[in-house]
Design a protein around this nucleic acid. Structure first.
Lengths: 215, 215
DNA sequence: TTTCTTAATCTTGTATACAAATTTATACTC
DNA sequence: GAGTATAAATTTGTATACAAGATTAAGAAA
């Protein structure tokens, strides 16, 4: 298995917790590889900002509340722009893929039972799919390059775990609004709706962080 | 010397041209190192998007005109946002550093004689300094993280080489406008001025690329 | 002469070895 | 018993070795 993907995955789903030192020998054993490819994967993760260097070796980065706020601000700007561009450049095929993603989104929300890990993973995947199609439709590969590094922050990734049914349906409704604006070629409307969508996500995560701090 | 910085520098100032294969043994000899640290530097550059993988090894990335356009669009959004945030959060110390950068900028432009490499390098550095202070004042470390990867594109970096005296003075004037808006705490004005500034940079680069294509 | 096949060479990718540095553990002193 | 110093043991960083795959070159056939 690819070392980079494995370690990244383990960080994202919390198997490797923030602050944990990532020993090379340990990872090499876990993946049945020598230290060389492990070190290269670590260098890649360091460039991504997912691990931070120590005096020697690296540890899993700890994202503060302030980091989360800044990252969501970034996402708001970039995805807002992507939505407005998508409303200009979207093709028929783009629209079909957005619609398809939202239909699946509706299904998995419908079938979803609270705190079922598998269905949450499906929700995360299909939500991401919708966002990715918009970014693709925006016709700017560089936006995609940067957003792919922004969204991957562990806490953002896991935020769906503490959505309730009502909030999930709310989220689907905003998706529909965004899609409608893109279909109608209304860039400003698409941007504003996307802004609102991501601000809701931000508030949701920040509130959760506040709650666990007070307990 | 650090392998990553060396190779990155060589790509930026064109010593390693787009498409050129970066042989590990070659780089190892050039830097008096073994292949191991070279490979790690290459992995880092790959994460940055400055080199692209081949079937085996990597080559220097070639940025197309379309890439340049997309990258400048990204810069416009991110630095425009940074300028508006700077207009809100700038401290006294931030303002002083912006002023200092612009004073030096004025001096080096004044003393500058066309196509003197050293003075051009100074101009590049002090222009970058002004932009960096604004990004710092915006109070968003993640914006800085992403912009640092966006601006480093070789062609963008070298765009100053084909500015004439009038255009340099023009550029200084816009810097002053941006600074004034930030000083007066006018976020929207600062953003718009920054947008204009970067669009001018973009048009300048794209026109240059067009010119060399037609010759 | 040109093209296809095969062999030789070169380069990468992975593993391992070794030295330097940091961390941990133990012992000694106050 | 606590703190410091010294020594032992991990662990990283760099170098090198080896094997697999890719590229180039050479030779044979059309």
């Amino acid at each position: 298995m690819d070392a980079y993907e494995y370690i990244k995955g383990a960080i994202i789903d919390g198997k490797f917790e923030p602050g944990m030192r990532l020993g090379e020998e340990f990872l090499a054993k876990e993946l049945n590889l020598s230290r060389t490819p492990i070190r290269e994967a670590i260098k890649h993760l360091e460039a991504d900002g997912l691990v931070v260097p120590l005096k020697r070796g690296v540890s899993v980065r700890n994202f503060t509340t302030e980091d989360i706020r800044q990252i969501y601000d970034l996402r708001t700007i970039l995805e807002g722009y992507a939505a407005s561009q998508a409303a200009i450049y979207r093709t028929k095929a783009d629209l079909e893929q957005m619609e398809a993603a939202n239909i699946v989104y509706e299904q998995v929300i419908e079938e979803h039972v609270q705190s079922d890990m598998d269905s949450i993973k499906e929700i995360v995947a299909v939500n991401q799919r919708f966002h990715e199609v918009i970014i693709h439709a925006a016709n700017n590969a560089h936006i995609h390059f940067h957003l792919s590094k922004v969204v991957v922050v562990p806490i953002v990734y896991r935020s769906f775990y503490w959505y309730n049914d009502y909030q999930l349906k709310q989220s689907l409704e905003v998706h529909k609004t965004i899609l409608q604006a893109i279909r109608n070629k209304e860039p400003e409307r698409a941007k504003i709706a996307m802004h609102e969508h991501i601000y809701q996500g931000r508030d949701h995560v920040l509130k959760h962080l506040e709650d666990i701090k007070n307990s």
